[in-house]
Design a protein around this nucleic acid. Structure first.
Lengths: 251, 251
DNA sequence: CGCAACTTTGACCAGATTCAAAGTAAGTGG
DNA sequence: CCACTTACTTTGAATCTGGTCAAAGTTGCG
């Protein structure tokens, strides 16, 4: 399950690709040493693979190194709600480490490369590395903030505003996290993914996206959405700019 | 602003009412001593008062001792989404302590009694009290989990299921936190509050609640909802029981 | 070439919103 | 104690947003 060499060598923390990204904060030497020791392996998964599943009790915590995934919940009859997307630098599995079990599943959207940490060693982080513990809490608070905004969106924005918000949101996160590097800016999602995030049917999602396409704010490509005017999308949604964002921590 | 005696004496931590509640975990002596020193005062607010406001940068962190409040966000044109309700034992203001500023507001639903902590001393928690730092993270993860479920509800449940879920949710939290003590179980909310949580209009919320009333699952009283059959409500929503819940931490 | 997955379109329907107005209860000041 | 106000709940009617169903069009892939 944990491949160290199969599809390429394991990345050592000092060479971590996240380290080159100005949006992430630097570690000091001691933290770096600890995280290197804390990291117990690397995991590669194909697109479509399930990383964590609702009801399970994972022994691991992961940081995304490369690729993207999404968190979702399902009702018994199959209705699915995508809760959030996961991109490089994001931490997953914290819920299953802190609480009894996962209450959502996570599926890879693209091929994925993950850092693996042992659940049993999380105590060490809190005991010996207050700054890293603080960062873990910060990361949890950030997820909360994102969910707040999604809830506002699904609860109170019209389908059109909601779609604009979602694409602007994904675009901002994808560019800042380094998930998307070069133009054109392509988000690798199907309309079904967007529908399940927006709380809409696929049919209506399609019709709503068509309006954004007509206005030349996005274009639809083979299995993906090209973002043409992210600022206009944020404007439609009334979503603030958040320019003063500080470099964010990751583990 | 911080009253120590005005409307009754300040509660000392060893006599904290939360301590009597089996659903909350106990502190050991050292933790208790620290929290006592960490607590810098007590705040009493009237129903309807705004505790924290979007865009502000609070110098405090609060734990609810008594009463209830709600977190919400608004769009520019006044549309409001209630994100979650806050009850005894809940921590508020963490976002503004960790990040630059609040991105939601909090308003008292009932008269409120809060423990006040200084933002500047949060570092001490992480530096010297790993167990408490862990608890703070746990509390953040719990909020995330609640938001996940709300998002599923607003995005994918029908109005009827959604209303049933929300009332079952509020009821479970209210009874476990000690916010509601004796029968009849009355939730002090208006239909406008429920509507803004459900992402529905007041009119449609009223019609939806009426169905629950007809089925004798709830009754509507003066400014409040009486819960008659919480289990039936959870069933309608397909919301799991969560019986094996462990005592939870608070600060 | 042909299947499988995804996107698009149209017709019709249901659930939810809006608007308007009336009913109810609690609270206030005379 | 009553009249008046305010806040909240209820109802009906008209309208609209978004859902469902069905079918066809695309694209990628083996």
């Amino acid at each position: 399950m944990i491949s160290r060499t199969a599809n390429g060598a394991m990345t050592s923390c000092p060479n971590c690709p996240l380290r080159d990204n100005e949006h992430f904060r630097d570690f000091d030497k001691e933290q770096l040493a600890f995280v290197m020791a804390f990291k117990s392996g690397e995991l590669r998964l194909d697109a479509g693979a399930t990383i964590l599943v609702e009801g399970s009790h994972s022994a691991h915590l992961y940081t995304i190194l490369e690729g993207s995934a999404f968190r979702y919940k399902m009702l018994e009859d199959g209705r699915r709600q995508i809760l959030n997307f996961v991109m490089p630098g994001d931490l997953i599995g914290l819920q299953s480490v802190l609480m009894a079990e996962m209450q959502h599943s996570i599926e890879a959207l693209t091929p994925l490369r993950l850092c693996v940490f042992e659940r049993d060693r999380v105590d060490e982080v809190f005991r010996d590395h207050p700054r890293l513990a603080y960062d873990v809490t910060w990361i949890a608070a950030r997820e909360e903030r994102i969910l707040d905004e999604h809830l506002l969106s699904v609860g109170r924005r019209s389908a059109f505003e909601r779609a604009a918000y979602l694409i602007a949101f994904l675009h901002r996160r994808a560019t800042r996290s380094g998930f998307i590097r070069r133009k054109p800016h392509l988000l690798p999602v199907t309309q079904q993914h967007l529908a399940d995030t927006l709380g809409l049917s696929v049919v209506h999602t399609n019709k709503t996206l068509r309006k954004l396409i007509t206005r030349k704010l996005i274009a639809w490509r083979n299995h993906g959405c090209e973002v043409l005017d992210a600022d206009a999308l944020s404007d439609i949604a009334g979503w603030p700019d958040d320019e003063d964002e500080m470099p964010r921590p990751f583990i």
